[in-house]
């Protein structure tokens, strides 16, 4: 068995003295693991950092074997993130969430594209939280927990959408909510593409996506709680919203 693809490194764990088992999100083969011989050596460690984009050749005797990767760097993103707490915590959150949520070997080309675009923005701290929020919405969509914010679930209109149903993930207008408003989640305008997308708005929106990650996705996957890295990223954005950039 052999295929060629490109992938974004989500993480890796050491295997023996010099090898690592690499966890990558590939363009056409979904999330895939494979052994990288010499991947733990100082010369290659930079290539297998989370967020790095690699050209991959995967080989195995049988399809269900772990197999091994031959890697070649396409893009390393270390320099963009090391000096930025926001980018680092965001990168960690996105990688941890992908590794948590995506099943292995199930093609997710759209998630790959969205993730590649998100990671290409690393280092641009002014727009990154907003881009991350949109990426989380895409992730929920791809995993079957998409938010339908096109029209009110009660009235059908597209005006004055102010809430989200925690059950269906559909938008609800102020008029449609009526006396049920206190049981619904507030819909931050930034999720509708409105407003300037500042950190406060993004923090509110991440609260909404976080609700669906914690209450819908995590129970469905039955793999424990959402990775702590997401909460740390949210803390960084919240602090920035309260005190401004570093």
């Amino acid at each position: 068995m052999e295929w060629r693809d490109q992938g974004i490194v989500l993480g890796g764990r050491s295997h023996g003295e010099n090898a690592i088992i690499l966890d990558v999100l590939t363009q056409t083969h979904g999330r895939h693991l494979g052994l990288v011989r010499g991947g733990a050596s100082p010369k290659r460690a930079a290539l297998v950092q989370p967020g790095a984009q690699l050209s991959l050749i995967w080989r195995a005797r049988l399809e269900d074997h772990l197999g091994s990767f031959t890697i070649d760097p396409l893009r390393t993103r270390g320099a963009q993130v090391f000096t930025s707490k926001l980018s680092l915590s965001g990168l960690n959150a996105a990688c941890a969430l992908l590794a948590f949520a995506l099943p292995e070997r199930e093609p997710q080309p759209q998630i790959f594209d969205h993730t590649e675009r998100l990671f290409d923005l690393l280092g641009q701290d002014d727009v990154w939280p907003l881009a991350y929020m949109r990426w989380e919405m895409h992730l929920l969509q791809a995993l079957g927990f998409g938010l339908d914010l096109r029209a009110c679930a009660v009235c059908g209109g597209a005006n004055d959408l102010s809430y989200i149903s925690p059950k269906s993930g559909r938008a609800v207008s102020r008029a449609g909510a009526g006396e049920w408003a206190d049981r619904l989640l507030p819909l931050p305008p930034v999720m509708l593409g409105q407003g300037d997308g500042d950190d406060k708005a993004v923090t509110d929106a991440l609260g909404v996506t976080g609700y669906f990650l914690h209450e819908k996705l995590a129970p469905a996957l039955a793999q424990g709680p959402i990775p702590e890295a997401r909460a740390r990223f949210l803390d960084v954005v919240s602090v920035r919203a309260a005190h401004g950039p570093d």
Binding site: L47, P73, R77, G78, A79, Q80, F82
Partner: peptide, 11 residues
């Protein structure tokens, strides 16, 4: 050197 290291050195 990888571009990340060169970028860090330049910065």
């Amino acid at each position: 050197l990888d571009e990340g290291t060169i970028g860090a050195a330049l910065a």
